[in-house]
Computed example of a mutant assay.
Amino acid sequence: MKRITIKDIAKALGYSAGTVSKALADSYEISNITKLEIQKYANEKGYSFNHYAKLLRTGRTNIIGMIVPAIGNSFFSQILEGIEEQMSKTAYNLLIMQSNDDPVCEMTHLETLYKKGADAIVITPTGNKSSMEYLKKLKDKGIPVVLMDRTNYNIDTHKIGIDNYAAVYESVTHLINQGRTNILFISSLAKGVVEERRRGYLQCLRDYNIQYHSKNLLSIDVEKKGRKSQEELMLYLSQKMKSELPPDAIFTASDQLTYQTLEVLHALHIEVPAQVSLIGFANFRFTNIFEPPLSCIVQPSKEMGAQAFLLLSEILDNQSQKSALFKNIRLPASVEIRQSS
């Protein structure tokens, strides 16, 4: 059977080849009625769009590069799920890279994506100065950049995250309303997000006239090889629980730390929530199966991924209408209260 072409469709429907081409590409220049008529006819006749030919004409690769700290982390895997769900309907391809929060690795990935001609980049950055400068250069070259999750950086670009301050403030308020006043704040070293979360914790203590103790803050490198971060966490919590004024609650500012902290508390035979309450970030879909079920902040990770792709596809498909305005999208997170607090 002869393969149907754009010229065949144009002749059959009485449109120009240019109109048919734009309609099949879902161009804003063509009315919805005309697009529906042309697309319906093309589908019925088995027309197959030649994406490769389009790439040759436009000079684009249709590659969107994505760099995340850890693909195995449920939060980032759900972001990828959201992106790929939207991307599967298009001709774009996602090239996923893992930085392990290593600035050297991150820079290597950025250079690779540039050499491969990536049309856009989505990144959860380490915050390394060299990497941020490189991102600015890519942006200045016309490559759209979206910062994901860790957005608190001084760079004019698109950003997608949550209101970390509000989510933490609400969580710490819950602990205080439960009668907890000696609250630990345990965070990773991740820049671009920890500062805002810590600010929510500190402001909540001030607003409730609760004394702040600097030793109640622990920043820990969760990316340490082996179980060194777990050992550091166990030593810290063991000493705190044996102190004259042991904590009665813990807030954990990352998914990994939430799970590690619960594991350490079990290992130390500390009862949750009888001795100490626990609440923190956790995007694992089945936090209710933990013992006890975890109170947690759940980020709309899948929606964040979907929003990132929709934003980029809009930019890439309408490059002739570039806007100097960058979007800073903040999606609401939910605080889910369970038995651990």
Rank of each mutant, 00 (worst) to 15 (best):
I4M: 13
I4W: 09
K11N: 12
A12N: 10
L13A: 06
S16Y: 04
G18L: 10
G18I: 09
A25Q: 13
L36A: 11
E37G: 00
I38L: 09
Q39T: 09
N43V: 03
Y47I: 02
Y47C: 04
N50C: 12
G65W: 02
V68N: 00
P69H: 05
N73V: 05
L80C: 12
L80Y: 06
E84L: 12
Q86L: 06
A91C: 10
L94M: 13
S99K: 03
D102A: 04
V104M: 14
V104Q: 13
V104R: 14
C105V: 09
H109C: 07
L110P: 07
Y114F: 13
G117D: 00
A118F: 11
D119M: 08
D119F: 09
T126F: 04
G127T: 03
G127D: 02
S130R: 14
K136E: 08
K137C: 00
K137M: 08
K139D: 01
K141W: 06
G142W: 10
P144Y: 02
V146K: 02
D149L: 05
R150F: 08
N152S: 05
D156L: 04
G161V: 00
A166Q: 13
S171N: 02
H174V: 02
H174N: 03
N177M: 07
R180A: 02
N182L: 01
I183K: 01
S187C: 13
A190Q: 14
V194Q: 08
E195R: 08
G200S: 04
L202R: 11
Y212C: 03
H213G: 00
H213I: 05
H213E: 08
H213F: 14
K215Q: 10
L218P: 10
V222A: 10
K225Q: 10
Q230T: 12
E231V: 15
E232I: 14
L235S: 12
S238I: 03
K240W: 07
K240M: 15
S243N: 09
A249V: 07
F251Q: 01
F251E: 00
S254E: 06
D255V: 03
Q260Y: 05
L262S: 01
E263I: 04
V264Q: 06
V264W: 01
L265K: 12
H266T: 05
A267I: 03
A267F: 11
L268M: 05
P273I: 01
A274I: 12
A274D: 12
Q275F: 09
Q275D: 05
I279V: 15
E291A: 11
E291H: 11
P293L: 06
V298F: 09
S301P: 07
S301Q: 05
A308Q: 02
L311Q: 04
L311P: 07
L311D: 01
L312T: 02
I315W: 04
D317M: 14
Q321K: 15
K322R: 14
A324V: 11
L325H: 11
F326H: 13
F326C: 09
I329K: 12
R330E: 02
S334V: 13
V335I: 15
S340P: 04
